[in-house]
Structure formats: structure tokens, C-alpha cells
Nucleic acid binder design. Structure first.
Length: 594
RNA sequence: GGGGGUGUAGCUCAGUUGGUUAGAGCGAUCGCCUGUCACGCGAUAGGUCGAGGGUUCGAGUCCCUUCACUCCCGCCA
């Protein structure tokens, strides 16, 4: 038995009554009755109520003790009478009668209370993160994160994957996010970059013949933060496999995510076998490549209707003639919804920067009619055709918008979400995973109109490499895929291009000549020409998985020591200035000096 | 880089149309209280109303500038 405790604060039960124990922990809460003091002692494991009476010579001293002081108490476990049992804590049937105690760590007046369910400003939570982390909810989130990570490690091992570390100091890459740079002392004027992901290394691990790799890998990207995106660093379950097709990667990841989510959440899984949706279909049906499949609403393209002579909705007809499209969302059996519901959506759409959402409800008295402000513009035949194309029935309503494709996708995607929330169609107690597949290899840069890689330049294009039509690069699809859960992008991956010739060809379309590719990706391209196996992988985001499991909307709630939005660590004061000596060693001088 | 929100006691917040001495709960300090588990009761202390400037007889409140935090857009293969 060690000198601090015989038991932890969640261990004592009725069967321990009568035994003498030592407990150490934090004073979570005191309830002072003047001649009788209740003191809740807390540690990582739980809470034990301790009591002391006036007769004890230590009473006055203990009565004055600050909350969050760390103490060791010595005493006897006693039974609680039935009416004083606390069912909310696991040790609630007993309490410890304090005989002696000792202060192990004093505590100043608290800048933020630990025992409270109040919300605090993040600034103060991050500055005193060690106090914040004592609080129940976040303490449990961090423990959950640890358990999820160990579970994933053990599952991956069971699947035959081995974990390998890859360098943290590596080279800057031209594609993707902004790099964090680290100046080299031994190589003046040169810089390392922190890896945005171990992308090239994991492929090199495959070329090195290791077959199945994984790593809980830190990734560093110098981009602006969001609620679900830490500035600076985050973690991925990075994995890669040799001699595999897309389907092999899917099988591993599906098994892993299903077992992880079933183990760590009570929510239902909508699919054990994740549906696959092509990128093109996803944009059409959901307006986004991150579809929330809990939402049953589907977007349909009804542009053709607006070319009919018996449709007189002239504003839309004119826009359609100049290249805009019309897309709609059907809501089931909404004929009795109040006018305010429909106008609310229209008003909301305008607030989102759209020109609004038109709507009407399909009604039938003797004949089909469209009830609503713009229903009158459609003939009976047009209405019937519209119902046929969209699957709408009498009593259903239609919301539609007209715009250029990209903007139309944006607004219908938002509307799909908004309408579903208004109608309460999304089951918050469900996880709906899906694969988004068949991403295009290239896309056109909106500003420069140049062709660029749409995702990962190392992805394998689909089809026989002899037969790919390189003259129409925007039509080339890649074996590139994403996992989406409840509208959140969890990860993306690909079957990689392991053929150097094909790689040069694809890079040339994106504007890199052979020499540039050799320079920028020397490690990779060199390796691929020495017998590279076909391989592929994926990298699910650990932080977002834990967010979903912990039901948190903010990534900082599942991160132990996060930085704030300006990428500062308020507790450690990072980043900080360095002295001239350090700069000199690194051959650096600062342009801006305060 | 741009847009929105917030900023008042250690913490969480209220503060009316611009009006005289800026409030509450929790916490702190002191006192009372032997069965609480958000214990209860009483008292006391605690404020550069984020900062600076302006309008006004008078500003927490209105205007301008600025700072911090946060959410979003851009960005993030």
C-alpha cells in the first residue's frame, strides 16, 4: 500500500464498511453545517463523501480549506442510513469518517470554478486549461479520446496492420495547405516543413515492402481555424495497404468504424455497409460532397420544365436560357403547413445571399393545381410532368431555386438542411456513414481558369491508362474517395498512382514539367521507378471521430491542450519571441521589430 | 484579408428612452447552523463598465477609432 491512498475515490462500497482507509484527492465541494462538515473528495475515478464533526480537533482547519486543495484523508468507512444514500455517485452508499488529514497541495482562489456546470469564456478556460480539464464533461471527453485511440490501435493490429513512425521534420511540399516551416541551423537559409500528412512517407513504406501500415499521425497545416478545425495540428488515423483495390480499403475502414462507433456510442448506425455515392450524384442530389444521409430530402434537377411553352414563369425561363439551372426539394405532405413556414424558408434563403426560394403545394380539387404565389405559372400538364419527374404527390410541396450551377448547389444544399430542420426530419440519435467515390482527377481554378489537381496529385486515374483521354482532363475520374458521417467529412483517401510515366503525364496537365516533378517529389518519383506495388489508403480524422462520439460541436472540447483561433497557446505562451542569439544561430533576421 | 456576435465584480450574467449612489447569483471573507449532496441563514469586501477619443449639462447606454475572444467566408490536396 502506498502512503497516499489505499483506495481511489470511486472504489469504496458497502462491503468496505468498518475498514480503515486513506484517500487522496481534490476537495470538490464542501457542505458546512457548522458542527458537521461534508466534504466531497474527487480524483480521476470518482467522488467519495467524507465527513468530520466538531469534536475532531482538525475540524476548524478543514472547514476553512479552499476548494480544489489536494488533501490526503485517513478515516473509517461508515454506512449511510437509507435516506441519506446518494444514488448519483457510485460510492453513494457509504461515506468516510475523517480521523486525520494532511494537505498535499494548496490552492489559491480559483479563476474559474471547477465544480459548476456553467459555461466559461474560452479565453479563461484555455489559460487555466489544467483547471478546466478537471471538470467532468471535458475530463470524460479526453478519457474517451484515449480509449478510442487505444481501441483503434488494437483493431488495426488485429487486421494485420503495424504502426510505423514517420519524420516530423521533412520537406515543404508545393501542393495543398500552407506549411509550418522550421529553419535549419546546419543548413543556413534552408527550412524543414512539418508534415501536412505523412502522405509520401506512407507510400514509401509500401514501396519498402511493409504491406500494411498505420499510424495515429500528427498533421500540421498552417491554415485558419474553424470550430471543427484546430489551427496548426490535428491527428489522423493514417493507413496504407499494398496490392489492394478500392474495395479492400473500404472493407477495413467500414469494419473499423462500425466497431468503434458501436463500442463508444449508444447512437444507432443507419448503415453497417456504407452506401457509395458518386461525387457527381452527391452534388446533384445533396448539393454537396458532404451529404448528411440522415436527412431524407433529395434535390432534383427540373431545368427542362422551364423550357416548356405551358410554363410562364418568365424570370426563371429567361435565366435558364442564359445557362442557369433550376433545382428543387419536395417536402412530403406539407399542404397544411402555415404560410409562415413557406415564407420563412424564402426569407431565410434571401438571408443566405440567394434570390429566395419559390414554392407551391400540389393540390387537387377536380384538377391538379399549384397552390402558392407562383403555382399559377404552371399548366396542369406541366404540373403533372413535374410530379412525375420529382415523385411528388398531391399534398406535397415543392421548393425551387434558379441559378448558375455552383451557386445553385450551394443554396439547395443549405436549403435541404434548413427545411429538414424545420420539419424535424433529422434523427439526432443516428450516425449515417457513406462513401463518396469517383472524384474528378482535375478541376478548373475559378480565378486563373487553369487545370489543377482537385484532390491528391498521387491518386490513380480510373480506367485503362492507355485509353484515358488526356485531352479532356476534367472528365478523368480518380480512385479517390471520402468518408462522410452526418454531413461531416471524416477522411479522404485514394488508390495511388504507382506508375511514374502516368504520374509525369498527369502532372504535365496540371502545369508541372518532368524536371519540376523530379525536384518537388524526388523521394516519391524515384521510389516508384524501383518496383512499386499497387497501393492505396485513407486517413480518417481522429479528432472528428471523437467529436462525433462525444457529441461535441467544437474540436477544442476533445483536445487536451488546444490553441485558440489565432493559433496561440494561452497557457504556455506560444508562439513566443526568441532572443537574438537563437536567431543568429539560425541565420535569421527579423524584418519587423517591436 | 472580409463579415457577424460578444466584452459590466474572481466566475456567469442583468442593466429600461442617455439621468443622480452600476445590480443579482455563484465564489471569497466573517458569523450562525449535526445529515447535506447546487445544504440553509445573516453580514462584509470586491468595478479603469475591454481601451482611447468624441457628442452632451450628464455616457455602461449614442458616435468614431482600436484591442481581445468567438462563429462564418476566403483558405484547408
Amino acid at each position: 500500500m502506498n502512503k497516499y491512498r489505499s483506495h481511489n475515490c470511486n472504489e469504496l462500497r458497502k462491503s468496505d464498511v468498518g475498514s480503515k482507509v486513506f484517500l487522496s484527492g481534490w476537495i470538490n465541494k464542501k457542505r458546512d453545517h457548522g458542527n458537521l462538515l461534508f466534504l466531497d473528495l474527487r480524483d480521476n475515478y470518482g467522488i467519495t463523501q467524507c465527513i468530520i464533526e466538531k469534536e475532531n480537533s482538525k475540524f476548524d482547519f478543514l472547514e476553512k480549506m479552499q476548494l480544489e486543495t489536494v488533501i490526503k484523508i485517513e478515516g473509517k468507512v461508515v454506512n449511510r442510513s437509507s435516506e441519506t444514500i446518494n444514488k448519483d455517485i457510485e460510492t453513494g452508499e457509504i461515506e468516510v469518517a475523517i480521523e486525520k488529514f494532511e494537505v498535499l497541495g494548496t490552492c489559491k482562489e480559483l479563476p474559474l470554478p471547477v465544480f459548476s456546470n456553467q459555461e466559461y469564456a474560452e479565453e479563461i478556460r484555455l489559460k487555466y486549461r489544467f483547471l478546466d480539464l478537471r471538470r467532468k464533461k471535458i475530463h470524460e471527453n479526453i478519457i474517451l479520446r484515449s480509449k478510442v485511440i487505444s481501441f483503434i490501435r488494437s483493431e488495426m493490429n488485429k487486421f494485420g496492420f503495424l504502426e510505423y513512425q514517420t519524420p516530423i521534420l521533412t520537406s515543404s511540399s508545393p501542393e495543398g495547405a500552407r506549411d509550418f516551416l522550421v529553419p535549419s541551423r546546419l543548413n543556413p537559409g534552408k527550412f524543414y516543413a512539418l508534415p501536412q500528412a505523412p502522405q509520401q512517407f506512407k507510400q514509401l513504406i509500401m514501396v519498402s515492402g511493409f504491406d500494411k501500415y498505420f499510424q495515429i499521425a500528427p498533421c500540421f497545416r498552417d491554415e485558419d481555424a474553424r470550430a471543427d478545425r484546430s489551427p496548426g495540428e490535428f491527428y489522423q488515423l493514417d493507413l496504407e495497404m499494398s496490392f489492394v483495390e478500392q474495395e479492400d480499403v473500404f472493407n477495413v475502414v467500414e469494419k473499423l468504424l462500425v466497431s468503434t462507433f458501436k463500442r463508444f456510442s449508444k447512437k444507432k448506425l443507419m448503415f453497417d455497409k456504407f452506401p457509395k455515392i458518386s461525387y457527381a450524384d452527391s452534388l446533384l442530389q445533396y448539393g454537396s460532397d458532404k451529404p448528411d444521409l440522415r436527412n431524407p430530402l433529395i434535390i432534383k434537377d427540373i431545368t427542362e420544365i422551364f423550357t416548356r411553352a405551358d410554363v410562364s414563369f418568365d424570370i426563371f425561363k429567361k435565366l435558364v436560357k442564359s445557362g442557369s439551372r433550376v433545382r428543387c426539394i419536395i417536402t412530403k405532405d406539407t399542404k397544411d403547413k402555415p404560410r409562415s413556414f413557406f415564407d420563412g424558408i424564402d426569407k431565410w434563403a434571401k438571408e443566405q445571399g440567394a434570390s429566395g426560394m419559390a414554392y407551391f403545394t400540389f393540390e387537387k380539387d377536380k384538377e391538379i393545381s399549384g397552390k402558392g404565389p407562383v403555382g399559377k405559372f404552371f399548366s396542369k400538364a406541366a404540373l403533372l410532368e413535374l410530379m412525375k419527374q420529382t415523385g411528388a404527390n398531391v399534398g406535397d410541396s415543392i421548393f425551387f431555386a434558379c441559378n448558375k450551377l455552383k451557386e445553385l448547389e450551394r443554396i439547395t444544399s443549405l436549403a435541404r438542411d434548413k427545411i429538414a430542420k424545420e420539419l424535424d426530419l433529422i434523427d439526432d440519435n443516428t450516425f449515417a456513414f457513406c462513401w463518396v467515390v469517383d472524384y474528378p482527377m482535375f478541376e478548373e481554378d475559378e480565378q486563373t481558369k487553369k487545370i489543377k489537381f482537385s484532390h491528391n496529385p498521387f491518386s490513380m486515374p480510373q480506367g485503362d491508362s492507355d485509353k484515358i483521354n488526356f485531352d479532356k482532363p476534367l472528365e478523368i475520374l480518380a480512385y479517390q474517395y471520402d468518408i462522410v458521417c452526418n454531413g461531416i467529412e471524416l477522411s479522404s483517401g485514394a488508390i495511388r498512382n504507382h506508375k511514374p510515366d502516368l504520374m509525369y503525364k498527369l502532372f504535365s496537365i496540371a502545369g508541372y514539367n518532368q524536371k519540376q516533378v523530379d525536384e518537388k517529389f524526388s523521394g516519391m518519383i524515384n521510389a516508384l521507378s524501383f518496383g512499386a506495388p499497387p497501393h492505396g489508403g485513407i486517413a480518417p480524422g481522429i479528432d472528428r471521430i471523437v467529436m462525433l462520439l462525444a457529441n461535441e460541436k467544437n474540436i477544442r472540447e476533445v483536445t487536451m491542450f488546444p490553441m485558440n483561433q489565432n493559433a496561440q497557446d494561452l497557457m504556455m505562451n506560444a508562439p513566443s519571441e526568441v532572443n537574438d542569439e537563437q536567431l543568429k544561430e539560425l541565420s535569421l533576421s527579423l524584418k519587423t521589430k517591436k
